[in-house]
Design a protein around this nucleic acid. Sequence first.
DNA 1: TGCTAATATTTGCGTACTCAATAGTTGAGC
DNA 2: GCTCAACTATTGAGTACGCAAATATTAGCA
Lengths: 154, 154
Amino acid sequence: MSSQVTDLRGIELEAWINFLRAHAAVTRQFNAELLATHGLTINDFDVLAQLSRAPENALKRVDLAESVLLTPSGITRLLKGLEEAGWVRNRPCAEDARVTYAVLTPAGKRKLGEARKTHVASVRALFSERFEQDELETLASLLERLPLRDSSCD
Amino acid sequence: MSSQVTDLRGIELEAWINFLRAHAAVTRQFNAELLATHGLTINDFDVLAQLSRAPENALKRVDLAESVLLTPSGITRLLKGLEEAGWVRNRPCAEDARVTYAVLTPAGKRKLGEARKTHVASVRALFSERFEQDELETLASLLERLPLRDSSCD
DNA sequence: TGCTAATATTTGCGTACTCAATAGTTGAGC
DNA sequence: GCTCAACTATTGAGTACGCAAATATTAGCA
């Protein structure tokens, strides 16, 4: 009978539960903020950011899905919104008619630029308010191990 | 031009992005697993677990909302499902007719017991597979600082 | 060349949320 | 005792997904 209160349910559970709570709280805040200020969701922002970093500002849907961790169908619908807003354009692929690239438009680039200013500042503020530099590094590197691409086996 | 690749966007962003990816990957897996095995979502499970830990296995909706970080309306709808399944029952409050308690039924307790076995094992497995004991403690304590109840000011 | 398996994307259907508006209840001040 | 602000809970409307099935297209192989 150890007396560490936090250990009642095991440290893994403790970490997992804190993780869930933290995510709910933080994403709710950032989403509301981003939506109010720029009309974007976190994932919208994320997709725009991915595109801006890609060669020619273009990415296949599949790759986009993998990099922001949405399903392909999620990407389709998310992109539909961005297309209607004029921030992203479709470009068919010459070699393979199955794939269509999503391309960041100049308007999309501008939009991202505006949103980035406030959103990145918020993220910085929230995280650096609560953590020291070395803690952030620790946190980032620990979290990096989680998203496990479904490895090996069955 | 520093050459730390991960620092290109600042360590806060790095941590935040890893956080989002980790959450998407892990919750998707756990949710699918929990749903396939027991017909529960993570939040269903979480609510049942909260109730089981409460005195008399009963909690007000408001408190439930706060502890699992859903909005009150989210709680209402989630509980509706659990009630229909017979795992939770409503109990009006004698002193204050506004509040209704959610009470865990014996069936709900059994259900939680079954689900806990597999779910907790999964969580343990996933986390302890990737982290050492002391890393888990670090992770848990870092994450604990994030969910900030909206403090002070405006 | 024709058949089959794999891949890229979209669509149908269902679910889990959120926010804003509502209804019912309580308590505080006059 | 009545009125109004504060609180609890629900409902309406809308959104952001996921999974599984459907649709194209490509590639491997006989």
